[in-house]
Simulated scan of single mutants.
Amino acid sequence: MSGIYQHHWQGDPDRPALALHCMLASAGYWGPIAKRLDGRVGLKAFDMPGHGRSGDWTPDPDGPDFHTTVTRIAASFIDRPLDLIGHSMGATVALRIAVAAPDAIRSLTLIEPVLFAAAPDRQQASRDTQVASLYEQGRETEATRAFIDAWGAQPFDDLPPQAQHQMQRRIGLVANNVPPLSHDSANILRDGGLEAIDAPVMLISGENSPPVIHAIADALAGRLPDVGRATVPGAGHMLPLTHADEVAGLIGVNLDRA
C-alpha cells in the first residue's frame, strides 16, 4: 500500500473496524466518530488515492478503475471478520466487499451509499452528465462547484480557497466513478449478492439529502436479510461531519446488533 496514508484510533483490539470516507474528502473526518465510540472498536481508515495525504491516482487504460483500486486497498486491511463502515462512495466500496466476501463482515454500516444504479434517477443522471461534461471541457471549477453544491456540507463558494483548489484537483475522480456508481459496472447488485450478507446492516440517511439517497436505501433494504434503517433529522449528505453524535450513536447500535 505504498503512498496510502493510514489512520488508526485505538480501541478494543479484539474488535477491529474499518471506515471508508467519501469522495473529495479524507479519512480524518472519522476522528470525531471514533472519539464518540470511545474505544469500542479499534478503528482504522485510510485516505483514498488522490485524497488527503495519500499519493495521487492516475487512470490506466489497462488497469483497474478508481472504485476497484479503492476496494482492493480496503480489502487488504481485512484479515479477520470486522465491523465495516462506509460513507457515500466509501459505503459503495463497503457494500462491494460485503457482497464479495460476506464472511469477512461482522457488521456493515452504510451511510448514504451512492449506488445510483439501485434506484435510477433522472435528476442524478443529469448531475452525472453535467459534471462529466464540464470536466471534459476543462472547466474544473464549474464541475467541482456543481458536485459540491449537490453533495457538500456547504456551498463550494463558501469553502476556503485551499479546500476549493484541492477539490478541483480531484474532480476527475468523480467523473471516473460514474460507471461503478450509476451503471453498476462492479456488479454489486447481482442476483443473490445482497441476499448473501447475513451480518447486521444499518442504513443511515440524512433527512435533507437528495431524494435519490432515500430511494437507494429503499432498494437496498428490500434485499438485505438483516437491516435496520435510520434517518437523521436536519442532516444532509455530509452527516458524519455535521451530525457526529447521531451518526456515532447509530453506528453503536449496529455494533450492538453484531
Rank of each mutant, 00 (worst) to 15 (best):
I4D: 06
H7C: 13
Q10C: 05
Q10I: 14
Q10A: 15
Q10R: 14
G11N: 11
R15N: 12
P16K: 02
L18T: 10
H21W: 03
H21A: 03
H21R: 00
L24R: 00
S26F: 08
G28M: 05
G28P: 06
G28Q: 12
W30G: 04
P32L: 01
I33R: 02
K35C: 05
L37A: 11
L43A: 07
F46G: 10
M48S: 04
H51V: 04
H51L: 01
D56N: 10
D60N: 15
P61L: 11
G63Y: 09
P64Y: 03
D65P: 04
H67T: 06
T68F: 02
T69K: 06
T69M: 09
V70Y: 01
I73M: 08
D79R: 14
D79Q: 10
D79L: 02
D79A: 04
R80P: 04
L82T: 13
D83N: 10
D83R: 08
L84W: 03
A91Y: 09
V93C: 12
L95N: 06
A100F: 00
A104Q: 13
A104Y: 02
I105H: 04
I105C: 05
S107Y: 07
S107K: 00
T109V: 14
I111S: 01
E112R: 00
E112S: 13
F116I: 09
A117L: 09
A119C: 09
P120V: 11
Q124F: 09
Q124E: 13
A125C: 07
A125W: 13
R127Y: 12
D128Q: 11
L134F: 08
Y135F: 15
R139A: 12
E142K: 12
D149C: 09
W151S: 02
G152P: 11
A153Y: 10
Q154C: 01
F156Y: 15
F156W: 14
D158K: 04
P160L: 02
Q162V: 14
A163G: 01
Q164F: 00
Q164C: 11
R169W: 03
I171Y: 02
V174E: 10
V174L: 07
A175V: 15
N176I: 01
N177G: 07
V178L: 13
V178N: 00
A186I: 04
I188H: 00
R190Y: 03
R190F: 02
R190L: 06
G192M: 12
I197W: 06
M202Y: 01
L203G: 00
I204L: 15
I204G: 03
V212A: 02
I216G: 07
L220Y: 11
L220G: 10
A230V: 15
H237T: 07
L239G: 01
P240Q: 02
P240I: 09
T242P: 05
A244W: 03
G252A: 07
D256N: 14
R257I: 14
